[in-house]
Design a protein around this nucleic acid. Sequence first.
DNA 1: TTGACAATAGAACGAACGTTCTATTACCCT
DNA 2: AGGGTAATAGAACGTTCGTTCTATTGTCAA
Lengths: 195, 195
Amino acid sequence: MKEKRTVESVEKVIADFLRKNRRMPTYSEMVDLLDVRSKSVVNFWISKLVAAGILHKDSKGFLKPARPSLLLPMVGEVAAGFPSPAEEELRDIMSFDEYLITQPDSSFILKVSGDSMIDEGIKPGDLVIVNRGKEPKNGDVIVAEVDGEWTMKYFKKKGGAVILEAANPRYPPVKPRSELRVAGVVTAVIRKYHQ
Amino acid sequence: MKEKRTVESVEKVIADFLRKNRRMPTYSEMVDLLDVRSKSVVNFWISKLVAAGILHKDSKGFLKPARPSLLLPMVGEVAAGFPSPAEEELRDIMSFDEYLITQPDSSFILKVSGDSMIDEGIKPGDLVIVNRGKEPKNGDVIVAEVDGEWTMKYFKKKGGAVILEAANPRYPPVKPRSELRVAGVVTAVIRKYHQ
DNA sequence: TTGACAATAGAACGAACGTTCTATTACCCT
DNA sequence: AGGGTAATAGAACGTTCGTTCTATTGTCAA
């Protein structure tokens, strides 16, 4: 009950607020959040966080989180089969929004149905981010309209001719006759378990 | 050059600012962003966006994006093999941060190495979100320490006994002898192409 | 016990915030 | 051309922001 305020605890309180309200708390709000009675105390701690590089102030003096918001520790690698390296957190904080979406203007999301890319690890129900501005390269996973049908396939070039291959032996390669409209290149796959 | 301001264009301008600065612009800043000369014009448009449900105001009167920040249109399903439904955007906006991370306090991220879960669509290099608070259920993908080794496997219960199975025929099922420490349940998989 | 430093409290202040009002300009439809 | 609505401009206003100052309390070591 008598927890002392530390840089970490303050950071956590702010991160929680940020997650819930999607904005930084005001100093007045932080008076409540930190359970203190004066804004100058808040200022005292905020200055500490800024000095510690946890928060930044932009040119206008507004506070903003230095690292993107979500505050998930990035632990290391699971060697699926090998012993793991560091169990405890070399905590790198990351935001999937920033990580996944490099070109927000030209990207969109699709939900996958069908199993034609199953061997690429893209399963029905997965979400894929499609970048429509990107030029498809050999081997890329693309979304394309071939002869009136929309599909997700590997983009393969063989001697000038374009062939679309599924990542599933049950689907034969497609050689587009007349029209091949590439909607975009798949740049990310997201799957969520337990709804 | 003479683009007209629309609800959409204003939304986009704000979303861009939000992405860059991780906070809402002030009305004064929006004067510049929207290329107008008065805050009342800003107010005019902001009211429109609020009425349209694109922005919300919280109890304190602060603006915040109604939907999480990132602004990617969610188009529909790629029928990998079937014709696609709507090509044009039934735009649903989403943030992967919120979508993926339901329990930030008890989750962490791991990078996958090894191919033991390949048939589950989890490939080397993928990131997985692991929830350490969750009770593993039959069939869940879990990260666990078995006899001193960290692995990612299916969690299977067969008559009281726990068996860990890989999603790869090349790996035999593991029957933990002494210790089975479940580090957590995999709740999401993220893969990014092109670095 | 006392001294030094860290942490908290409280008040005061200017600046910037979002709001609101009135007035003017641009656009479209008939 | 006219008339009506949508969009913009500009100024004024009360509120609240973050900052800063001084004063008080708490904590630990000598």
